[in-house]
């Protein structure tokens, strides 16, 4: 199998859709002439032309809303935020317009649209440019939210997202665009709403997604050296959330640590932990441990930022504290 980077996997998914479906087009800031802030759409303008690769003004509300309108009219727009941090000014369109249209119209209007956005901290962009709003959006009924951690899932989820008749928000961990992995030549999709057991184990369940997978994978390696067998689960989809896969794992391991590279407070892991304590209490040998980044604005200084960001040590500490392993 060829090994490619997440960036190329995303690009492949977008390119296929643009080639195969004339209803698919893209909009975003500097996705055309410039080639995209993270070079995912590099070369698209030349290949597909300005009608399908639309550079927008710096007007997130207007171009997200325009995407929603175009989707409501039967097209399949793919809209890019240069950063998920910039999605905040367009939340009214995402939350009030896109997520509600179908329900409020009694099912008469759908919004088959993909919004893509680089997400997360870790590259010293400070407080305004380091957000992880996928955790907020996962709470909104009517939206689907996915977050790949590797090239295989990036391509498979992008294919599913573009085919979906709902708005699917694809949060792309900014630190992982260069992460490489094997992707088969044969066509496949990754189902939205299905978590993936990326590593089988018997002693403890580690759950994360996106950039957080780096920390749990490293922690699992360290635990293995200590003779502790960790089962590692990549949620891949934040909404819908695949509780069953996590519950199945806990039945086997009786221990769980849930890990987010976004801030600890609120968010998907708080939701997951709350459900798990209700549904899995009879199997658990200890408390569900939560790990997340510090509840402070993201600092610029590298040392400060790294101190705030979740890492493998945080995961190992939680494993030790909760279960003495």
């Amino acid at each position: 199998m060829p090994e490619i980077a997440v960036r190329q996997a995303l690009k492949q998914g977008l390119e296929e859709a643009l080639e195969n479906d004339p209803r698919v087009f893209m909009m975003g800031e500097d996705i055309g002439e410039y080639g995209g802030a993270y070079a995912v759409t590099d070369g698209f303008l030349k290949k597909f032309g300005p009608e399908r690769i639309k550079d927008t003004p710096i007007s997130e509300q207007a171009f997200v809303g325009a995407g929603i309108g175009a989707a409501a009219a039967g097209l399949r727009p793919i809209v890019e935020f240069m950063s998920i941090s910039f999605s905040l000014v367009a939340f009214d369109q995402i939350v009030n317009m896109a997520a509600n249209l179908r329900y409020m119209s009694g099912g008469r209007i759908s919004v088959p649209m993909v919004i893509r956005a680089p997400t997360g901290a870790g590259v010293q962009l400070a407080a305004t440019h380091s957000h992880s709003f996928e955790t907020w959006l996962a709470e909104v009924p009517g939206l689907k939210v996915v977050c790949p951690s590797n090239p295989y899932d990036a391509l498979g989820l992008m294919r599913s997202a573009i085919k979906d008749d709902n708005l699917v928000f694809v949060a792309e961990p900014a630190l992982l665009y260069g992460a490489r992995g094997e992707v088969p030549d044969e066509y496949y999709e990754v189902e939205i709403g299905k978590a993936n057991v990326v590593r089988s184990g018997t002693d403890i369940t580690l759950v994360s997604y996106g950039y957080g997978m780096r920390s749990v994978n490293t922690a699992a390696d360290v635990l293995q050296q200590r003779g502790v067998s960790a089962e590692v689960i990549d949620l891949r989809s934040l909404s819908p959330l695949d509780l069953d896969t996590v519950l199945g794992s806990i039945r086997k391991t009786n221990r769980a640590v849930v890990v987010d590279s976004a801030r600890r407070k609120g968010g998907v892991m708080a939701e997951l932990a709350a459900d798990l304590q209700q549904l899995a209490s009879e199997w658990l040998d200890g408390p569900i441990m939560r790990v997340g980044s510090e509840d402070v604005p993201w600092p610029y200084n590298r040392g400060l930022e790294q101190a705030a960001l979740t890492d493998a040590d945080d995961v190992l500490n939680a494993v030790a504290e909760g279960y003495g392993l």
């Binding site: 809303g65 325009a66 929603i68 309108g69 175009a70 409501a72 009219a73 369109q93 317009m97």
Partner: peptide
């Protein structure tokens, strides 16, 4: 912007 998108 919804209207702009329908027009688009």
């Amino acid at each position: 912007p919804l209207a702009a998108g329908l027009a688009l």
